[in-house]
């Protein structure tokens, strides 16, 4: 999906995903590793505040990836 989105929309795309190798094979150029399959952007073991700040960190990294020029597949 990510490849097609980047190609069609012609804007930078970032893939937040749990299994980085899959993201690599499907051709994502900007990859932001996530936490775990059932909760990629969260952690139920944390307090709601801590979980929010964890999620914010992941999203901020994704946004930072969008603001970074890459020449090949890059894991942030």
């Amino acid at each position: 999906m990510i490849k097609e989105l980047e190609e069609v929309v012609d804007v930078p795309c970032v893939h937040i995903c749990t299994v980085v190798p899959i993201s690599l094979t499907v051709g994502a150029n900007r990859i932001d590793p996530a936490v775990a399959i059932p909760h990629p952007l969260g952690n139920p073991a944390l307090s709601p505040e801590d979980e929010f700040s964890l999620r914010r960190k992941i999203v901020e990294k994704a946004l930072q990836a969008l603001c970074t020029d890459v020449s090949e597949q890059t894991v942030f």
Partner: peptide, 11 residues
């Protein structure tokens, strides 16, 4: 470790 070449082959 994930074997990327094998993963691509499987895909």
């Amino acid at each position: 470790e994930v074997d990327i070449a094998a993963l691509k082959l499987a895909e």
